[in-house]
Structures are given as structure tokens and as C-alpha cells.
């Protein structure tokens, strides 16, 4: 009962929609003529010669467009994702800004300079069903460094990185996780040619991005700690405070939750000390009486002990449980 935790702040659909919108113009701008396209130029002329007129065409010159390898990666998290005890999903997009179908190798690096902690990467998956949300067991999982499916020119793919906090992360620490996408055909300085490896049998040429791009998503550790303090006050049958038979002891249990996170499933339990008897209907939570029976309210009490289910408690909250026993 030393530590409680919080859940993830999921990206809302509104946020996701905002991002989709932001990416579209970029993709449209990147539209390039597809690899394998033939550019054919023919000039023609009309003229008159004396009373006759005629026309003539030039030969046709043809240029084949080769594959340009380009990629853009964006982190889709504007506000840092808060991470507690459960795993969180970081979202990234990979856009094929080249002009031919291309798969990309995805590398996730949780060790970014300046990190308060380095997240533990559990799973890397891409949005194979295209619904924009991580579906465990449905979206295709890839190994770190593994390749996505082939992305058509100008197509975008969402990649999910599922991470957890490492042991030792403390409340409020932040961390960045970097995702890098490299064209499977190859990367290099712009202009590097991969002969015969372009779509349609032509060459592949590294574009301005170097056929590699990366972006980071940020996360913040949001943890809660719970402190429990127990005190007792005694009222004896004679108006004093002596622990004599017949005296009533009131136990006070104060649970203090601190941190930016929240404690989940928090129970305050105690046993009835030997030689004492629980006083029926004396259980209180924050001053309000709880019934002894296991029912709709949070408390259960009896001869064996008490149990108050506080459920989820946000950091910065104090809960006080009291109960009385009589010394036999």
C-alpha cells in the first residue's frame, strides 16, 4: 500500500482529427509524379509557304521518372502523454513523401538526451487496419528496426509505440521517445542513386530528406504516493483517557495521496486488536458514518477488522477513516 498509480491520458478523437488535418496539406504539397511515369515532349509547327500551308511535328523525346526516396515523420503528441502504472501509447505518423511505393524501417529510441528517465519500449505496431487507434492484437506488431508495409506515394501510416515507465521514474519527470523511419531501399545524402532499385525497375534516388526522418513524442511520469498515518485516542468509563477495560479507543487512519497522479483501488484496512471488541456502527469515512454490512457504501466492518474501499484517489487528497473498539 505504498504506491498507487494513474492511467493514461488518451489522445481524444478531437486531437487525432486535428492532426490528420494538419498532415493533409503537407502530403498534398509533396505530391510528385509517380515513379515510372514517362514524360514525353513533342512540338509541332504550322506554316505557310507561298499559297500552301502545312504542319510538321518534331520527334518525341521521352524521359522516365525514377523513384525518389523521401520520408517525413511527425510525433502526434502535442501535449506530453502522462504515464502512470499502466502502459501508454505514443503515436507517430510516417508519410512517404517520395513518388513510389516504399516500406520504411522503424527504429524507436527511448534514450534521448535530456530525458529524466528512459521509457521501456514494450511494443511497436503500425495501424494496419487504418482506424487511427491502437488495437492490441489487431494492429501489426513489428520489431524495433523492422519494416512497415509498403506505403504508396504520399500515403501516411500511423505508428504506435507502447511504453511503460521504468522502475525508478519519479513523479513529474519527463522523457522523449524518438522514432526514426528509414527507406528500406536505402538512405544517404540527397542524390545518392540506388541503381535498378526504384519502383518499376528504374533507379531509386535519395531525396532532400536523405530518405530518413525522425520525430519525438514526449511523456511525463505521473505517479502518486500514499502515506498512511494511524493514531488512537482513548476515553475511559470514568471520563479520563486511561486504557482500562471498558475504555473506548478511537482509531484514526489518515491516508494522504500526493503526486500528480492518482491512487487506484486504494483500500484502507485494519484489524481489531486482540482484547478489544469492534463497536458496532462506529466506522466513519471523512466524518460520515458507514454501515458495517458489505453494501453500497465503501465500508465493511466486523469482529475481524475494517475495510474501506477508497477507489481512485487523486494526488493532493486526504482521506480519514475512524472506528471505535472497546477494551474487554
Amino acid at each position: 500500500m505504498k504506491q498507487g498509480h494513474i492511467t493514461i491520458l488518451r489522445l481524444t478523437s478531437a486531437v487525432t482529427a486535428g492532426f490528420t488535418f494538419a498532415i493533409v496539406p503537407q502530403a498534398a504539397q509533396a505530391a510528385g509524379v509517380l515513379a515510372g511515369t514517362l514524360i514525353e515532349n513533342t512540338a509541332s509547327a504550322t506554316y505557310s509557304s507561298g499559297t500552301a500551308s502545312g504542319s510538321v511535328s518534331s520527334n518525341t523525346v521521352t524521359v522516365k521518372v525514377d523513384e525518389l526516396l523521401d520520408v517525413a515523420v511527425a510525433g502526434l503528441t502535442t501535449t506530453p502523454v502522462t504515464a502512470g502504472s499502466t502502459s501508454v501509447v505514443l503515436e507517430y505518423s510516417i508519410t512517404n513523401t517520395g513518388n513510389g511505393g516504399e516500406a520504411f524501417n522503424v527504429t524507436v529510441d527511448p534514450a534521448v538526451a535530456g530525458n529524466g528517465f528512459d521509457a521501456v519500449v514494450q511494443t511497436i505496431a503500425y495501424d494496419s487496419n487504418g482506424n487511427g487507434t491502437y488495437d492490441a492484437g489487431v494492429d501489426t506488431v513489428i520489431t524495433n528496426g523492422g519494416a512497415t508495409s509498403s506505403l504508396a506515394a504520399d500515403a501516411s501510416l500511423k505508428v504506435f509505440v507502447i511504453v511503460t515507465l521504468p522502475a525508478g521514474a519519479t513523479d513529474g519527470q519527463s522523457s522523449q521517445v524518438r522514432l526514426t523511419a528509414d527507406a528500406v531501399t536505402g538512405t544517404g545524402t540527397p542524390g545518392t542513386v540506388f541503381t535498378g532499385q526504384g519502383e518499376g525497375g528504374g533507379d531509386a534516388v535519395v531525396g532532400a530528406s536523405g530518405a530518413s526522418d525522425n520525430a519525438t513524442d514526449q511523456m511525463i511520469a505521473s505517479l502518486a504516493t500514499v502515506a498512511l498515518a494511524k493514531s488512537a485516542s482513548i476515553v475511559d468509563p470514568f471520563g479520563g483517557s486511561q486504557p482500562v477495560p471498558g475504555a473506548v479507543i478511537t482509531y484514526t487512519l489518515v491516508a494522504t495521496v500526493s503526486g500528480t497522479g492518482q491512487a487506484e483501488g486504494l483500500h484502507v484496512t485494519d484489524i481489531i486488536p486482540a482484547g478489544t471488541t469492534y463497536q458496532v456502527s462506529s466506522l466513519k469515512l471523512d466524518g460520515a458514518s458507514l454501515t458495517d454490512a458489505a453494501d453500497a457504501d465503501a465500508g465493511v466492518a466486523g469482529a475481524s477488522g475494517i475495510d474501506v474501499d477508497l477507489g481512485t484517489v487523486a494526488g493532493g487528497t486526504t482521506k480519514t477513516v475512524k472506528f471505535d473498539v472497546k477494551i474487554n
Binding site: V33, T37, L38, I39, E40, N41, T42, A43, S44, A45, T46, Y47, S48, S49, G50, S53, V65
Partner: peptide
């Protein structure tokens, strides 16, 4: 290429698709 003068010589070039 002829021995005659040619008049109203108009060269038209459609811009190819893709450029």
C-alpha cells in the same frame, strides 16, 4: 530546309504530363 521562304511559322508545344 527548302529553297523557299516560309511564313507564319508557329511552333506549338503541349507541356507534357508530369512536368
Amino acid at each position: 530546309t527548302s529553297t523557299d521562304k516560309v511564313d507564319n511559322f508557329v511552333v506549338t508545344n503541349p507541356i507534357p504530363a508530369g512536368v
